[in-house]
Write a protein that binds this DNA or RNA. Structure first.
Length: 161
DNA sequence: GCCAACGTTGGC
DNA sequence: GCCAACGTTGGC
């Protein structure tokens, strides 16, 4: 007899350029698929580690203001990113075959938007977040793990209510 | 628009 | 397997 242990909830931060897809777009759509990731580390997180129910900080990059703009939830685990198969798509990758997909995505559901974006500047000012991955100099990874402690601290900030 | 930091490619 | 060249990311 095997017993399954309820998996610990995990947390992530996912970057998006709001010109392309913003927290307001997700709020409108309610759910989305996270296509277009073409980095192996980020892919591995989606393909191998993300689970249904995981919490996601939705981060706005390359925009003023840069920072966390909302919360989403993983509702579907990693599956092949079909945009890699479409020659007309910006993210087309002929290396990725339907028989052997290279790129993966997950599905997300909107949870909430910040009343006010929690800016990168502000996150940097919080000592307990000093080692947060997204705050590391030179970090370009579009999906990074967030520790439960970091999640806790950030979700308690006044910008949410 | 600039450019530092990083990931990927490909010649050797 | 090394590493220079190149392309991209993303804060500023």
């Amino acid at each position: 007899m095997e017993y399954s242990v309820a998996p610990e909830k995990q947390y992530w931060l996912m970057k998006s350029e709001p010109n392309t897809y913003s927290i307001d777009d997700l709020k409108r759509d309610r759910t989305t698929y996270w296509s277009g990731v073409r980095n192996y580390q980020a892919r591995n997180f989606m393909r191998d580690q993300m689970r249904v129910g995981d919490g996601v900080f939705f981060y706005h990059s390359n925009v003023e203001p840069v920072g966390i703009a909302g919360i989403a939830e993983v509702i579907k685990t990693g599956y092949p990113d079909h945009t890699a198969w479409d020659p007309k798509n910006k993210y087309y990758d002929p290396q990725s075959l339907s028989s052997q997909p290279v790129w993966f995505m997950v599905d997300l559901r909107f949870k909430k938007a910040c009343r006010e974006v929690i800016t990168l500047k502000r996150l940097k000012e919080i000592p307990a977040l000093k080692s947060m991955m997204v705050l590391r100099k030179g970090n370009r990874l579009s999906i990074t793990p967030v520790t439960p402690e970091e999640w806790e601290i950030i979700t308690r900030l006044p910008e949410w209510s």
